[in-house]
């Protein structure tokens, strides 16, 4: 009887299996395409796009690395991303804590002000931001760009973290206060450990935003090797006779940090998303 039931369930889940595997294939095919194309020339890429490469020569990677000095681009991207993550968390965590614990109207108003940040289209900020960087004499500087990126992701970071902090029982905070803990200590020793999943989620979402940003990087940091990020360096490989194998090899290299970060944080992110789904 149990066997019959499980067979029925298996059949019932078949459409779901098909959809899930189709979806996985849809996600996997572009990654596969990028990977195999990084070892091919243009003719092979366009003539047999999904075929395996005929050789595993790393020439395309070497050419991408040398032509646009990809190493320096990666370092610049890493600096910008790390600085932005640090500034965002340093500002968003106390702000989210304040909002989450506020019981009055001011807290609600402040939260809405942060939410209004979503309404500003990024493109509309381009020219004013450029003018600001020039006025501050910080044009083509990594710290200005990092501050700008932090400012753009602060609203979503604060809103997300505040939601996570709201799930922490007030009693924990009250007992800490009774034991003489200050606000900072409560945030540090009670809230931060309990919202690690939320922090991980914010870190990786922001990481992807910072790492992949192109337009503002181009305008604010420019093409010079000393400041350009990897996302600005890569399109330099695009010419009227682009070697797509070289471009995709460079793209693959630029993706490595994203995968490393995901490997480190994925369990916490999945936990955070799951926690969110349970709450819903």
């Amino acid at each position: 009887m149990f066997k019959r039931k499980s067979t029925d369930e298996g059949i019932a889940l078949l459409p779901a299996h098909i959809l899930v595997w189709t979806y996985a294939a849809l996600l996997g095919i572009p990654i596969y395409f990028v990977f195999v194309s990084a070892f091919k020339d243009n003719i092979a890429i366009f003539d047999t796009p999904l075929a395996l490469p005929t050789s595993l020569s790393f020439d395309n990677f070497v050419q991408a690395w040398n032509t646009v000095k990809l190493g320096r681009g990666l370092i610049n991207s890493l600096i910008v991303t790390t600085m932005s993550e640090f500034v965002t968390l340093a500002l968003a965590l106390p702000a989210a804590y304040g909002i989450a614990r506020s019981k009055g109207k001011i807290g609600a108003v402040v939260e809405r002000i942060f939410a209004l940040g979503f309404l500003i289209p990024a493109f509309a900020a381009l020219v004013p931001t450029l003018l600001l960087s020039i006025k501050l004499n910080m044009y083509h500087t990594l710290p200005f760009f990092s501050l700008f990126l932090s400012a753009t992701t602060l609203p979503i970071s604060v809103i997300l973290l505040a939601q996570f902090m709201r799930t922490i029982p007030h009693e924990l905070e009250e007992s800490a206060m009774l034991d003489g803990a200050t606000r900072w200590q409560t945030l540090r020793y009670i809230y931060l450990p309990l919202t690690r999943a939320g922090i991980a989620l914010v870190v990786i979402l922001n990481f992807l935003t910072y790492w992949n940003e192109y337009l503002f990087s181009l305008v604010l940091l420019g093409y010079q090797t000393s400041t350009r990020t990897v996302q600005v360096a890569l399109p330099v490989l695009v010419t009227n006779n682009t070697q797509y194998g070289v471009l995709l090899a460079g793209t693959l290299v630029s993706l490595i940090p994203v995968y490393i970060v995901y490997i480190f944080f994925h369990r916490k992110i999945e936990g955070a998303l799951l926690a969110g789904s349970i709450k819903v």
Partner: peptide, 11 residues
Amino acid sequence: SAAVMTGLAMP
């Protein structure tokens, strides 16, 4: 290091 590089990177 970013500040130092920025100094070097003045356009």
